[in-house]
Simulated scan of single mutants.
Amino acid sequence: MQGRWPIIAGAALAVGLFLLANALFIVDERQRALVLQFGQVRGDPVEEPGLYVKAPFIQNVVYFEDRILPLDTRALEVTPLDDRRLVVDAFARWRIVDTIRFRQAVFDEAAAVPRLERILNASLREVLGSVGSDAVLSDERTALMEQIRDDARTSARELGVDIVDVRIRRADLPEQNLQATFERMKAEREREAADERARGAEAAQRVRANADRQAVELVSEARREADVIRGRADAERNAVFAEAFGRDPEFFAFYRSMRAYEGALQGGNSSMVMSPESEFFNYLRNPNGAPAQARPTQ
């Protein structure tokens, strides 16, 4: 009998350690836990990290994430008030806040994702369907995302979940509408460009017409002033000639004849046929202007 005591003690120790191992459980800072007995929740949720005790064998522990979890949805087609369909790609961040309700409603995180995706899609359709597409594509998107979050949060509370944030990655036109929209935008820009070119051509024509008018006016004014100056100069010249002729008619006649000789008797191939007795040659025959004496012939 004495030789069996060590075996009994070792077996008892092993059983005790086994019972202790099944009675203790650990919850770390990233988790929250529920103690279940025959599938029913016993006690309050364990939300603080530490070492806890449960009844061995008849109780078990299920763990849930205490961190913020992602929810990525598939692209969703929505129709705003102006009937311009948009393809919206959104995502959300959520967290378990009521562990018991979450366990009863969706059982675990994997089963919660489809439910939350349906809630988010319904909120997207409801909120974005109440505004125009311009609001979705403008700075108003931030306010719309907050409204979507608040709407989805109300529905998600029934699952023991809090929707922390909702974001819209992109909101684009459907692929089949992109080309038509591009062509419409292109035609609009081409029309605006044609209007700008027409206005520019009209302005250029006005500038050219004004410049031509000013050029004609300037040339006409310059010619008028030149004619006036030329007339005054001719008048002064004639006055000088008249005064000179009045003072010494004989010298004036001599001067006029010299100018006539200078202009007529130039080198070149020009020929002039005149009578030797012409008055044109008076000062060539006689410096005093008298007819020259006929020279005797030999």
Rank of each mutant, 00 (worst) to 15 (best):
Pro6Thr: 05
Ala12Leu: 07
Ala12Asn: 01
Leu13Trp: 04
Ala14Ser: 13
Gly16Ala: 10
Phe18Arg: 07
Ala21Met: 12
Ala21Leu: 11
Ala21Ile: 05
Asn22Cys: 05
Asn22Lys: 09
Phe25Thr: 01
Asp28Leu: 01
Asp28Cys: 02
Gln31Met: 00
Phe38Trp: 11
Gly39Gln: 07
Gln40Pro: 04
Gln40Asn: 05
Val41Thr: 14
Arg42Phe: 03
Gly43Val: 01
Gly43Trp: 00
Val53Ala: 12
Asn60Thr: 13
Val62Lys: 04
Tyr63Ser: 00
Phe64Glu: 02
Phe64Thr: 04
Thr73Lys: 06
Arg74Val: 12
Val78Pro: 08
Pro80Asp: 05
Arg84Trp: 10
Leu86His: 06
Thr99Lys: 13
Arg103Gln: 02
Phe107Val: 14
Asp108Leu: 00
Glu109Cys: 01
Ala110Asn: 12
Arg115Pro: 09
Glu117Trp: 01
Arg118Lys: 12
Ile119Tyr: 13
Asn121His: 10
Asn121Trp: 00
Leu124Ser: 07
Glu126Lys: 13
Leu128Gln: 10
Gly129Asn: 14
Ser130Glu: 14
Val136Phe: 14
Ser138Arg: 15
Gln147Lys: 13
Arg149Gly: 12
Ala152Arg: 12
Gly160Leu: 09
Ile163Glu: 07
Ile163Asn: 08
Arg167Val: 14
Arg169Ser: 15
Asp172Thr: 09
Asp172Leu: 10
Pro174Arg: 05
Gln176Asn: 12
Thr181Leu: 03
Thr181Cys: 02
Glu183Trp: 08
Lys186Gly: 11
Ala187Glu: 02
Ala187Ile: 10
Glu188Tyr: 04
Glu188His: 01
Glu190Cys: 05
Glu190Gln: 08
Ala194Asp: 10
Glu196Pro: 00
Glu196Val: 11
Arg199Met: 06
Gly200Val: 05
Ala201Asn: 08
Ala201Ile: 11
Ala203His: 00
Gln205Arg: 04
Arg206Ala: 02
Val207Glu: 05
Ala211Cys: 00
Asp212Thr: 01
Val216Glu: 00
Leu218Arg: 14
Val219Cys: 10
Ser220Pro: 01
Glu221Met: 02
Arg224Trp: 06
Arg224Asp: 03
Glu225Pro: 02
Asp227Asn: 13
Val228Gly: 10
Val228Pro: 00
Ile229Pro: 00
Gly231Glu: 12
Arg232Phe: 01
Arg232Met: 03
Ala233Cys: 03
Ala233Ile: 03
Ala242Phe: 04
Glu243Thr: 06
Gly246Arg: 06
Asp248Thr: 06
Asp248Gly: 06
Arg259Glu: 09
Ala260Val: 07
Tyr261Ile: 08
Gly263Val: 04
Gly263Lys: 07
Gln266Asp: 06
Asn269Val: 15
Asn269His: 10
Val273Arg: 14
Val273Gly: 06
Val273Cys: 10
Pro276His: 09
Glu277Lys: 08
Ser278Glu: 08
Glu279Gly: 09
Phe281His: 03
Phe281Gly: 05
Asn282Arg: 14
Gly289Thr: 09
Gly289Phe: 04
Ala290Arg: 13
Pro291Arg: 12
Ala292Leu: 07
Thr297Pro: 00
Gln298Val: 15
